[in-house]
Simulated assay, not measured.
Amino acid sequence: MALENIWIATLSDGLIRADHVAGIEAHQTPELTGKASRWLLDVTLAAPAGSGTREGWEIAQLHRTLAQTDGYPSRAAEELARTLDYLRRRDIAGVLRAVVRHETLRFEFFPFDTGEDA
């Protein structure tokens, strides 16, 4: 099995297949009146998204947010890449989630039940 059997849970968009991830980044949202800035851990998907108007068609990278934190998620992008590589090399399938607890971002993997009863 490879990354096509690993699914990544997004913050609000459901699941994406890990083999569709083309990039990983952490970035800060702008501070708005009455709303503090937040840090987002995003993945960029290999498939672009487009939208059109009368003036033409615009293509942009498709981003999906995995986690949102108050503080900078130090090394989260590298840790996600390392976790995906580890899972890729194992004969395993399941869902990977980014979990924020007490200002710490970590990744939890939930394997699919491989029992015959399913």
Score class of each variant (00 low, 15 high):
100 V>Q: 08
109 F>I: 02
17 R>Q: 10
31 E>K: 11
1 M>L: 13
33 T>A: 15
2 A>V: 14
5 N>V: 05
15 L>P: 01
33 T>I: 11
28 Q>K: 02
110 F>W: 06
15 L>Y: 11
73 P>H: 08
4 E>K: 12
61 Q>D: 13
67 A>E: 06
68 Q>V: 09
46 A>E: 12
83 T>F: 11
20 H>Q: 15
95 V>I: 07
3 L>S: 01
36 A>E: 09
38 R>G: 06
33 T>G: 15
109 F>V: 10
32 L>I: 06
13 D>V: 01
70 D>G: 09
60 A>R: 15
61 Q>V: 05
64 R>T: 03
57 W>E: 12
67 A>V: 00
79 E>S: 15
87 L>C: 01
22 A>K: 06
84 L>T: 03
33 T>Q: 14
53 T>P: 05
57 W>I: 13
32 L>D: 09
61 Q>T: 14
6 I>Y: 02
91 D>Y: 09
51 S>N: 07
46 A>W: 03
101 R>N: 12
81 A>I: 09
74 S>I: 15
42 D>H: 06
38 R>N: 08
117 D>N: 10
93 A>M: 06
41 L>C: 01
41 L>N: 04
64 R>Q: 01
57 W>M: 12
71 G>S: 13
37 S>K: 04
52 G>A: 12
44 T>D: 07
70 D>L: 13
106 R>E: 12
111 P>E: 03
66 L>A: 00
115 G>E: 04
12 S>G: 12
65 T>F: 13
69 T>K: 00
80 L>K: 06
77 A>H: 07
101 R>D: 14
103 E>T: 13
58 E>G: 09
101 R>L: 14
67 A>C: 04
48 P>W: 02
24 I>Y: 02
14 G>S: 04
47 A>M: 09
104 T>E: 15
5 N>W: 03
55 E>F: 12
32 L>P: 08
109 F>N: 13
79 E>I: 10
70 D>S: 13
55 E>S: 07
11 L>P: 00
75 R>P: 13
82 R>A: 12
4 E>P: 03
100 V>C: 07
